[in-house]
Structures are given as C-alpha cells and as structure tokens.
Amino acid sequence: MVMPSLHIGEIVEYIVYWINDYFGFLLDIFSEFIDVLISGLRDVLMFLPPVAFTVAISLLVYFLTKRKAGLAIGTALGFLLIDSMNLWNLSMETLALVLSSALVVLAIGIPLGILSAKNELIYHIIKPALDFMQTMPSFVYLIPAVIFFGLGNVPGLVATIVFAMPPAIRLTNLGIRQVPVELVEVSDAFGSTPIQKLVKVELPVALPTIMAGVNQCIMLSLSMVVIAAMIGARGLGYQVLVGIQRVNIGQGFEAGLAIVIIAIVLDRLTQSLTPGK
C-alpha cells in the first residue's frame, strides 16, 4: 500500500504567505513596537560609559545577592574584560535584545500561565502548542520570521520570543497549581475575590517557581539571540557567526566568552531575586 503523500510543507508555506499578505499591517505595527523597545533599551544601556556601567552593575549584584562580595568582584572583572576585548557595544546590543525578549515573553507568558492554571480548557489548548514550540528546532522559526519581518533585529527577537516563551508559561502554570490546597481554602474561607486570591495568595506562594521560569526565559533568550544572528540580529551572535564563516578561532572565542560572562551575571541576578532560597 502506498501512503498518500501529504504536502504539509506547502500548506504551511501558503498559510505563512497568506498571513503576510493580509495581516501585514499588524505585523508592521508589531515590528515597529519591537524596534522601539530594542533601541530604547540599547540607548539606556549605552548611556553610561563602560567603567561606570561596570561599577553600577557590580553594586547591583552585590546588594541583590545579599552582599556576596565574590560575585560582585567577578561581575566587575567580567565586564571590564568585555570592554578590554573591544566587545562593549556589541555586548550591550546583545543585552538589549535579551532584555527586550524577556520583557515581551514575561508580559505574555505569565498571564497565559495563570490562565492555563485556572482553566483546564486553555491548559489543554496551550500544552500541545508549548510542546511544539519547545521541540521544533529553533532554526525553523527563523524562516517565517524573515518572511514577516525581513532581516535584522526584529525577526531575530521574534524567533527568540517564540523559543523562550514555553518555560515562562509552564513554570507559572506549575507554580500556581502547586499552591497548597489549604492555602487556597484559606483565601476562600476568608472571603477573597478571585483577584485577591491570585494577588495575595497564589502569586506570592508561586513566586519561587515563577522566578525559576524567569531565569529559564532569560537564559534561553540569550542562547537564541546568538542563533538569531543568522537572520541579521546584531550583537555578539553576529561576531560568532563571522568567526565561524572566516574560521577565525580567536574572534569566535572572544565573542563566546563575552556571552558566557553575560549569561552568568544574568543567571545569578535572577536567582538572587527568588525569595525564600
């Protein structure tokens, strides 16, 4: 028996072009918004000269990690190293992309996570979509992103958002579902409205889990921002890409090292914001 050949690829292609043709104006608005977000953040990050920025972020790490001097010193050395490798501007570009992506992901992901924890139907719709988003190779997102948004930072960021969204939704959902039954009963028994229950009981109790989602989302954003360089996202990723194309070990390693430094600092910062640990 010969299986009928299904041309799913063609169908997806058709849908993508159809969306591009008929909803192009919405995509343009979205594109404009993303662009403003990224360049705004970049301008803020580049406002301070490298040394002043290094001091500022080291102090931030010092106080947020409850005065762990070692971590603060490490952060300072790391950022000074980035500057001495002449990768400062590219690093700030990457940082701006990561933070923009994280902001959008959390703004969409946390409410979706809450909804899917509260509503079984939404949960069952979202769950396979998340599985799809997480297991589809991340390079595949780059293609429709290019069709919708052209080349540059914006499609790179959109692909990053899609890639980093699942853990934020999943862990918010998990955190809210894991709130002990008695605590939910407490808020009901004392006459909470659904909003009061969410804000005063469920979110605070779920916060450590939600923060783990925030951490995951930032880490995934960072890794995807590098890949997004393939479709024209600027920053350290582009430097790595050039290093690969020219088989320039030194250039690739330096950019990679800068990414590692940024990753560790962001990871420790988000972890230190998690309460009760």
């Binding site: 028994a189 605070p204 309460p275 009760g276």
Partner: peptide
C-alpha cells in the same frame, strides 16, 4: 465568609510569605 464565619485548618495553612501579624490581619485585609 468575611463577616460571620472563619475557619481554622488542620495544617495551620499560614501564608509562608507573610509575617505573623500580616497573616493574622489577612481576613481584614480581604
């Protein structure tokens, strides 16, 4: 539930992110 009936739970069910006084004041806060 707010004004007439309250409940005490077997497992205490205190809110872990709150101090004692904020736990006690929970019903009034609601």
């Amino acid at each position: 539930r707010r004004n007439k009936m309250t409940m005490v739970f077997q497992s205490f069910a205190l809110l872990p992110h709150r101090t004692v006084i904020d736990n006690v004041a929970f019903g009034l806060e609601i």
